[in-house]
Amino acid sequence: MAKLIVADQNSLARYNVDGSIDSSFGTNGQVLLSSLTFAPINTVTALASQPDGSIIALR
């Protein structure tokens, strides 16, 4: 099933096709970028979704 991934400066969020938040993603549908184990991302410039469901966020 398709999902919509949205990025802002501080987080990623994933939505279902009906527009509801995908609560199975991160914490209640959201991942704070500053909580990741690598250097914080200041601005996301591109997103890619892999076939295995992983997400690549480029800055």
Rank of each mutant, 00 (worst) to 15 (best):
S20P: 02
T45G: 10
V44P: 04
L32K: 14
T27N: 14
S24E: 12
L47K: 01
D18L: 07
F38N: 15
G19Y: 03
Q30M: 11
T27H: 07
L32Q: 14
G53Y: 05
G29E: 10
A48N: 10
D18H: 06
S20G: 14
I55D: 04
D22L: 07
A39H: 06
A46C: 11
L33P: 10
G19Q: 03
D18E: 08
A48R: 08
F38R: 08
I21P: 01
P51S: 15
L47I: 11
G29Y: 05
A48C: 14
S23T: 15
G53R: 06
T37V: 05
T37W: 02
G19A: 02
S24L: 11
F25V: 04
S34I: 07
N16T: 07
T27M: 05
N16Q: 13
D18M: 02
T43V: 15
S49L: 15
S24W: 00
A39M: 10
T43R: 14
D18Y: 01
L36S: 05
Q30F: 00
L47P: 09
A46M: 07
S24I: 01
D18I: 09
Q30L: 11
L36F: 05
Q30D: 01
S20H: 06
S23C: 00
A46R: 11
S49W: 03
L33D: 10
L47H: 05
G29K: 08
T43I: 15
G26N: 03
A48I: 06
G53W: 02
T27P: 00
N42W: 00
I41G: 00
F38K: 11
T43P: 01
L36P: 01
D18K: 08
G29R: 04
P40A: 12
S24Y: 03
P40E: 13
S49M: 14
L36R: 08
N28W: 00
T45V: 12
S20Y: 01
Q30K: 14
L32I: 14
A46E: 09
G53A: 05
V17C: 01
G19P: 05
T43H: 12
S49K: 10
S54R: 09
G29D: 11
S23F: 01
G29S: 02
D18R: 07
V17I: 09
G26A: 07
S34N: 14
V44I: 12
A46S: 15
S49Y: 01
S24F: 02
A48V: 14
Q30R: 12
T37L: 10
L32D: 10
V44A: 11
S35D: 13
S23Q: 13
T27R: 06
Q30V: 15
S20C: 02
V31M: 01
S35R: 01
G53P: 02
D18Q: 06
G19S: 06
V31Q: 02
T27S: 15
S23A: 13
D22M: 08
V17K: 11
L32H: 08
S23L: 11
T37N: 09
T45E: 14
V44G: 04
P51F: 12
G26R: 03
N28L: 04
A39N: 14
D52L: 08
S24A: 12
L47M: 03
G53M: 03
S34E: 12
A39V: 13
I41V: 13
I21G: 00
G53T: 07
N28S: 14
T45I: 12
A48T: 13
F38P: 02
V17P: 10
